[in-house]
Simulated scan of single mutants.
Amino acid sequence: MNTSVVIIGAGLTGLLTANRLQELGFDVKVLEARERIGGRINTLVSGKAKVEMGATWFNESHYHLLDVIEEFKVPYFEQFMTGTSYFQTFSNVPPQEIAVPNDSPSYRFKNGTVDLLNSIAAKLKPNTIFLNEEVNEVNVIDDDVEVKTNSRTLNAGIVITTLPPATLIDQITFTPQLPNELVSLAEQTHTWMQDSIKVALTYKKPFWREEGKSGTIFSNVGPLSEFYDQSNVEKESYALVGFASGSCARFTKEQRIEKIEAQLKMVFGDEALQYESYHETTWYNEEFTKSNRQEDNLFPHQNGGHALYQAPLFDNKLFISGTETSKHHSGYMEGAIFAAESVVVKLKNLHLTQ
């Protein structure tokens, strides 16, 4: 068995897969189109604050992720939810004060979600990860797989893609072509975060905590649908972070800010407008996340973990992986971990039988 492997995508699945395969003796290279690792994990540094513009929270049901966190010694802490939270039901009804139960807490990484990625990447051999390498073609030629990027051509025995399935079929040409059934499925597989707008505001002080508020908003009205405290555990930086509703996509950034400010003023008062910085990530504009071939009317996690994604292609030369393919918590960091562990087991078993 040819033990050279090219992994497409340096997100959580790609990096953990590389780590596991290198430990088994495989020769691994990871190709990442972006100029950073992480994919839909993106910790933005704004002054002293680290705000999450992508994947953020996990809980005790994410036990595969918790095992990896423990393995790589990545510190985390409980999401702040103490105090009054708010729920907006209708536009003509004042925000309702609510108490959020804390019997099933969520957690965040002390040094940002990127800390988990950096901890895994640090265990990889030198010259494993290659950034700014957009894969354009994957060609299976006899016993070899040729991978063409915007700057080079690599050859390997096995290729593992960790891209969202819709992005995969949109951006990479395969020879032979992928099965029609798989292509149709990929077009109908929801890409987690693809229709999200993540918003972060940083502050000099946590005015909401001083007023006995948690910083949490749940809203049916918008533009913010969910908003949470994202201050650091050392209480040195303060931020509010969450999601703007998908309807905000039709507005300009300036229009979104105006509407968000109006909502925050309604809920928290004038102090909410005294922010130091505003950041947003419109994931539907992210070139390597959103597919131009994907419908916008898919429901969350549609076709995630489908059986077609579990079988290798082209005589065990191409493996489809990534969080959308996970049968367990598809779309989440937990799913990304499960997908990595699953594909590694397949390759290990294949290696043992040859």
Rank of each mutant, 00 (worst) to 15 (best):
residue 2 N to I: 10
residue 330 S to K: 01
residue 168 L to E: 00
residue 198 K to A: 13
residue 344 V to F: 05
residue 15 L to S: 09
residue 163 L to Q: 03
residue 246 G to H: 11
residue 108 R to M: 15
residue 318 L to V: 07
residue 256 R to N: 10
residue 97 E to L: 04
residue 281 T to A: 10
residue 344 V to R: 09
residue 70 E to D: 15
residue 295 E to I: 12
residue 172 I to C: 01
residue 118 N to C: 07
residue 273 L to N: 06
residue 111 N to V: 01
residue 306 H to F: 04
residue 127 N to W: 02
residue 232 N to M: 03
residue 163 L to W: 01
residue 296 D to V: 08
residue 152 R to N: 08
residue 298 L to G: 00
residue 63 Y to E: 12
residue 117 L to S: 09
residue 93 V to L: 12
residue 191 T to Q: 05
residue 18 A to K: 02
residue 93 V to N: 05
residue 319 F to M: 05
residue 327 K to D: 04
residue 204 K to C: 06
residue 332 Y to W: 14
residue 342 S to A: 14
residue 202 T to C: 07
residue 59 N to Y: 11
residue 81 M to H: 11
residue 300 P to A: 01
residue 145 V to R: 05
residue 27 D to R: 13
residue 59 N to S: 13
residue 208 W to E: 07
residue 131 L to P: 11
residue 221 V to F: 06
residue 345 V to Q: 15
residue 96 Q to P: 02
residue 150 N to F: 11
residue 16 L to I: 12
residue 156 A to K: 08
residue 173 T to G: 07
residue 302 Q to Y: 06
residue 281 T to Q: 14
residue 261 E to T: 09
residue 151 S to H: 14
residue 158 I to L: 09
residue 104 S to H: 15
residue 15 L to W: 12
residue 5 V to S: 01
residue 118 N to Q: 14
residue 55 A to N: 10
residue 255 Q to L: 09
residue 196 S to C: 13
residue 69 I to S: 01
residue 137 E to R: 11
residue 176 P to A: 00
residue 256 R to S: 05
residue 348 K to N: 11
residue 164 P to I: 03
residue 74 V to T: 10
residue 303 N to K: 07
residue 156 A to Y: 09
residue 339 A to G: 08
residue 2 N to G: 08
residue 276 E to T: 15
residue 224 L to E: 08
residue 28 V to N: 04
residue 164 P to G: 05
residue 18 A to L: 07
residue 139 N to Q: 11
residue 313 L to V: 04
residue 165 P to G: 05
residue 292 N to V: 00
residue 115 D to P: 00
residue 23 E to C: 09
residue 148 K to G: 01
residue 102 N to P: 00
residue 263 Q to K: 06
residue 61 S to A: 13
residue 64 H to D: 12
residue 13 T to L: 02
residue 259 K to T: 02
residue 323 T to D: 09
residue 325 T to P: 01
residue 186 A to V: 01
residue 84 T to H: 08
residue 285 N to V: 02
residue 336 A to I: 06
residue 103 D to W: 11
residue 120 I to E: 04
residue 302 Q to H: 10
residue 183 V to S: 03
residue 94 P to G: 02
residue 89 T to W: 15
residue 318 L to Y: 03
residue 50 K to V: 01
residue 188 Q to K: 13
residue 333 M to N: 08
residue 76 Y to M: 04
residue 336 A to W: 04
residue 233 V to H: 12
residue 122 A to T: 12
residue 166 A to P: 03
residue 180 N to D: 15
residue 235 K to Q: 14
residue 120 I to V: 12
residue 288 F to Q: 01
residue 47 G to C: 08
residue 186 A to H: 00
residue 295 E to A: 13
residue 344 V to P: 07
residue 118 N to P: 00
residue 314 F to W: 11
residue 342 S to Y: 15
residue 191 T to H: 03
